[in-house]
Design a binder for these strands. Structure first.
Lengths: 206, 206
DNA sequence: TTTAATAGTGAACATTTGTTTACTTATTAT
DNA sequence: ATAATAAGTAAACAAATGTTCACTATTAAA
């Protein structure tokens, strides 16, 4: 018996975790078998035994529903973050102007990223070719460093826009992804220009 | 039946809470009876029934150890839900087949909706005109009732697809939002056809 | 007093759940 | 090829657990 988990064992362990998180009590052998579409309980039973031997689960004798999960440090708090939803980006960034806050929303940390982030509701159709629509919510990671092709939130003369970023020899090109709109050019040392952050995600509600 | 709890009921409820906190899973009727030094389970059973009627506990049918504690609205738990991400929809729904699970993700309850939901990774470009791209993740609310124009997950002969739903006189039209693709027509009483759910949201990671 | 609500006992009975045995199938390493 | 491991099926059995019935005791309210 290796000390590693096979893919299947991993899935079963995860299923136990999920069930516990979802229901507040652990699953039975049969429930697990059903989740995996298996008609017999013996297979799952064997896998649970292995998971116990490997120390990932504990169990209280023959009692039903007494599977305990061993490791798993709290998880919840660390996997979720609350971000503000802004109706528009304002001058005065990067300190967020909470004036325009529409509300808050919980996001999986996987999506919020390590640095400061916020959510921004899109106005207008300038990014229609990038499949970003009016009303969509963007996940914006606040940063000054961006690479060619990134979709950025830029602040130009206190006007905020969503554009694709391209650095050219002596200027920056802000490219809308809409055939009907023209790119904006910003000279190298134009004073009133800032990159607020880059778009790392998109949320849309139907 | 008053809405208040008697001292005894209070004690039993507290015992359930303690047991859950201590063991990670809920107590059985007999265990509770033992805790209170009672030789019969019927008394505790009756009290548990009352606690359920008064809304302090919930329980899943006849299942053992399925007592859930209601109040204690930690806020966090209520505003966030964990949904599985599926790589594809399989035959055998609506019981989700865990085989195809890619992982989990926390979603704001605002987006997950009240009924059963899951996340589905999009394969292919059939909905490109609806600005849904290959690789996007859809929030799917499991339901059989959908209206014309809804974007649905449909299961046709064990093949799952994302299409726009239109009910016509004697058939259903599943319309891809891609000019290069043809609609699919399903006759009224075609046997191997199911609506899995409707798409209520979209998540995209850049 | 009578009645209703609460709490309890003992003894069944019904279901759920855990466990085991025997056999099959794939895959992988020797 | 052979053996070992992981995973699965089907069927049975044992134990744990939930539920119900009939009856008793206490207390508070009508």
């Amino acid at each position: 018996m290796s000390t590693q988990l096979t893919p299947k064992q991993e899935k079963v362990l995860q299923a136990v975790r999920d069930f516990q998180a979802q229901n507040g009590f652990p699953p039975t052998v049969r429930e697990l078998a059903e989740m995996f579409g298996q008609s017999s309980t013996a297979g799952i039973h064997k896998i649970l035994q292995i998971l116990r031997e490997k120390g990932h689960l504990v169990k209280d004798g023959r009692k039903s529903r007494s599977l305990g999960i061993v490791d798993q440090g709290d998880l919840h708090e660390d996997r979720v973050r609350s971000l503000p939803i802004l109706g528009q980006v304002q001058a005065g960034m990067p300190q967020l102007a909470y004036e325009e806050k529409e509300g808050d929303m919980f996001i999986d940390s996987e999506w919020a990223g390590p640095s400061e982030s916020f959510l921004l509701r899109v106005r207008g159709h300038s990014m229609i070719d990038a499949d970003i629509r009016d009303g969509d919510i963007l996940v914006v990671r606040q940063t000054q460093t961006c690479r060619n092709g990134d979709i950025v939130i830029a602040l130009l003369d206190d006007e905020a826009t969503v554009k694709r970023f391209y650095k050219e020899h002596d200027r920056i090109r802000l490219q809308p992804e809409n055939p009907n709109m023209q790119p904006i050019y910003v000279e190298r040392d134009y004073p009133n220009f800032h990159i607020i952050g880059i778009v790392s995600g998109l949320l849309r509600k139907f």
